[in-house]
Design a protein around this nucleic acid. Structure first.
Lengths: 205, 205
DNA sequence: TAGATTGTTAATCGATTAACAATC
DNA sequence: TAGATTGTTAATCGATTAACAATC
């Protein structure tokens, strides 16, 4: 299963999961590829093709059993347990992440938040106390953290990434508007709202 | 120029712009497709191909003049002027967006922030006063707003999108973890950190 | 059984890359 | 001029779609 699945297919699985969770909450039991496709603007054929990479998850004639498929996708994506995450940078984005309640039922939890600014260290965000960057190694070890989120200014991000990686972090979600250079065994995703806005503005006027 | 360019090409232009701005700030004058590719993990051939959609922007033998290319990409993406944006939802994400200083030199500005919760209306975020949702139409008209950001809970997002569109908004950046259904002439981009995290966790362990 | 929908194959479509003539 | 790098074509590669037999 961790074999030859195209990255683009993996990228769609979280979308399937999101819509399935919604349908489940609405009390639905089965969903066909056609229904899911309508809700996601994705062709039914593509959804079937994507899911077929992981076995026969549906039933001919009736479609996909929602609860079952949610479980399977959770296992495939490794979100059937909770990943503890570190957030670096206790600015507005760091605050938003620390307070976000949408992580826990999707497989994630902010376990620690760091900042290098001594004025911020010690302050409270919800249940979390902002820790100094120097404590990163100890906390990552203690909490067994594999995923980190970078929410620092662009100038600090590359160094923070390297520090995180040297503590053993293997995956980074980067909010800083800069491309991170990392070794091949570290996975990075980028979020940059201005990039999305620039895509949008191309199509305006 | 607003013709047949593939969406996937448009999606890379903001990345080119971002790295070019960095090089410009560092004082560089020219950059080759190979250099840019190294900084972005994109092949040099692809960068040349992408840029060639918009004319002959480089010079054989020397590469691309950074300042010139920044200007050209700004014109292509319509970010050579400032777009005024509305943010709906004055929670943590709304705050982070209103305070973000990375928009203005990339073509955007948060001109207004709305919330439907009367307890929040009237509060201040930086220079902005949180306005009631009922004022949306008036503000969108007055400020000539075409782009909005949705930063509400998932349950409210679809309705907010429809309200925004009825005021004349043509592009939406959606932070709510739900797929928005909109007419074909409205453009939507989605940002959902949990989706990115789930992609990352697939590759872990 | 009849109707519905999957899983899968083959065909199509589109995107990336390699290669090189053009040219700065 | 010699060296470098673009713009562009053709070849390759990969992803999407259409279609349908299998089967619930």
């Amino acid at each position: 299963m961790p074999n030859k699945i195209p990255h683009i297919v993996i990228g769609r699985l979280p979308l399937y999961l999101r819509v399935l969770n919604r349908l489940h909450k609405e009390g639905k039991v089965y969903a066909s590829s056609q229904e899911l496709g309508k809700l996601l603007d994705i062709s039914a054929a593509q959804i079937r093709k994507d899911l077929s990479h992981f076995g026969e998850l549906g039933k001919r004639g009736t479609g996909y059993q929602i609860e079952f498929l949610i479980d399977e996708l959770g296992k495939i994506l490794n979100t059937d347990t909770i990943w503890k995450m570190a957030v670096v940078g206790a600015g507005d984005v760091g605050h938003a992440l620390a307070n976000y309640n949408g992580f826990v039922n999707r497989g994630f939890e902010v376990a620690a938040i760091f900042d290098c600014d001594p004025d911020k260290v010690g302050n409270q965000i919800g249940d979390l106390t902002i820790k100094d960057c120097s404590e990163m190694q100890a906390v990552v070890d203690q909490e067994n953290i594999k995923i980190a989120v970078i929410a620092t200014p662009a100038e600090a991000a590359q160094q923070v990434a390297e520090d995180l990686i040297s503590t053993g972090v293997k995956a980074i979600l980067n909010y800083a508007p800069i491309f991170l250079k990392v070794a091949d065994d570290v996975h990075v995703e980028h979020i940059d709202p201005a990039v999305h806005l620039q895509k949008l503005s191309y199509y305006l006027e």
